[in-house]
């Protein structure tokens, strides 16, 4: 389990609120997206409420009940506004 981690990417307003755009996040065992968002909120209370945030795992949109595992690339962002 030592060294098990995910790569976390923050975009747009989320990156502004965390003050970083990318970090490594230790993840000893897999968790649901919702549980991981609770960890995220504990570290960055300024992100609350995290229920509004969207997750992508390995560059695919996922629901909050999706599983996150060590080695994943996890992106956190507000609903998209392109086009």
């Amino acid at each position: 389990m030592n060294g098990a981690a995910i790569k976390v990417l923050y975009f747009a307003q989320v990156a502004e609120l965390t003050g970083t755009r990318q970090e490594s996040w230790p993840l000893p065992h897999s968790v649901s997206g919702a549980d991981w968002l609770c960890q995220l909120e504990a570290r960055y209370p300024q992100l609350a409420p995290v229920s509004r945030l969207r997750l992508a795992v390995n560059q695919r949109h996922v629901a909050h009940q999706a599983s996150i595992q060590a080695g994943d690339e996890v992106a956190v962002f507000e609903p998209v506004t392109g086009g």
């Binding site: 975009f11 747009a12 949109h61 962002f77 507000e78 609903p79 998209v80 506004t81 392109g82 086009g83």
Partner: peptide, 23 residues
């Protein structure tokens, strides 16, 4: 594209204010 493609717009107003546009 407007609901799935990961782009985010920040609007810079003429008066100097700046906003992230919400979906």
């Amino acid at each position: 594209l407007k609901t799935r493609a990961p782009f985010w717009k920040r609007e810079n107003l003429a008066d100097g204010d700046s906003f992230w546009v919400s979906q």
